[in-house]
């Protein structure tokens, strides 16, 4: 039987990628971020997930505005590392989980009526890879867990509502629990927190909003799911709207909060929150 064993909300700042690739994680400017993940990885080693469902957005790397799906689920045996315009990072291909993906697709479409785009091929980029780097560092030619990408449109409005993202998470929980195979699943909601990358407001951050968002995510996600895109963009910057993907994680992962961290050195509030479902 499938089981959700944990949930992680975390930022997917692209500059983390080269820092990992060039072994710069212990530099003073980056150490606070990477240190925050040491206890998270210890916790993950205890709860032993087999699979990570990574809720992320593609930043016009493998998807283009020719066709940009609202929700897209990977159902492949493996996922290539994408080139998002800066070259392909030297990372191993990511192993998928065809059986669980197929079950999720059928369950989400038939039982829960989420009309997903289904992807037999998908190249993953920083939105997916940075969270994997932080929580599940690769060793040699492989990653310690199988992974299933779930891509959400958070860049070309109209975006799905925060509540729809939350409901998708709840549906994922039901679907995982109805899986006949054995699978210990972690759900990761990625992106945010406060940031804006264009206009005169470039570099805008709002720590008090970010802390409030994490408080609410922990204590009252059902109410938080009522937040509008307008409110997020106004209070936390246009690109902060990625945070709706954290609600998908929280819809799927119940239980107690375990870790929480916040670091905002440059232009993005980098948040981290975990929930244990055991």
């Amino acid at each position: 039987m499938g089981r959700i064993v944990g949930g992680i909300g975390l930022s997917h700042v692209p500059s983390v990628g080269p820092v990992v690739d060039r072994n710069r994680t212990q530099e003073p400017a980056w150490k606070p971020l990477f240190d925050a993940y040491i206890p998270v990885r210890e916790w993950l080693a205890k709860i032993k997930p087999d699979v990570a469902i990574v809720v992320y957005n593609d930043h016009v790397a493998d998807f283009s505005f020719d066709k940009y799906p609202t929700f897209a689920l990977g159902v492949a045996e493996s996922y290539a590392i994408g080139d998002e315009g800066f070259g392909t990072r030297p990372l191993p291909t990511v192993a998928g989980d065809v059986e669980l993906s197929t079950h999720l697709a059928e369950s989400l479409v038939y039982e829960h009526e989420f009309d997903l785009t289904i992807c037999q091929e998908l190249a993953v980029e920083h939105g997916f890879l940075v969270p994997m780097n932080l929580c599940f560092p690769h060793a040699g030619n492989s990653w310690p867990v199988r992974a299933i990408p779930l891509q959400v449109n958070v860049i070309q409005h109209p975006l799905p509502t925060a509540r729809r993202c939350y409901r998708l998470g709840q549906a994922i929980r039901s679907a995982v629990e109805a899986f006949s195979g054995d699978a210990r699943v972690v759900v990761m909601g990625t992106g945010g927190m406060s940031h804006q990358l264009q206009g005169k407001r470039f570099g805008f951050m709002n720590e008090s909003f970010d802390q409030w968002f994490m408080d609410q995510l922990e204590s009252d996600p059902e109410s938080l799911a009522g937040i509008t895109h307008q409110k997020i963009m106004q209070d936390a910057g246009a690109e902060a709207v990625e945070l709706i993907m954290w609600l998908t994680m929280r819809g799927a992962a119940h239980g107690k909060r375990v870790h929480r961290h916040y670091y905002a050195p440059m232009t993005t509030g980098m948040g981290l929150i975990t929930f244990s479902d055991s």
């Binding site: 070309q156 409005h157 109209p158 804006q196 206009g199 407001r201 963009m233 246009a238």
Partner: peptide, 9 residues
């Protein structure tokens, strides 16, 4: 939203 572009259709 002041000084902000919202990328819509």
């Amino acid at each position: 939203i002041a000084d902000t572009s919202v990328f819509d259709l």
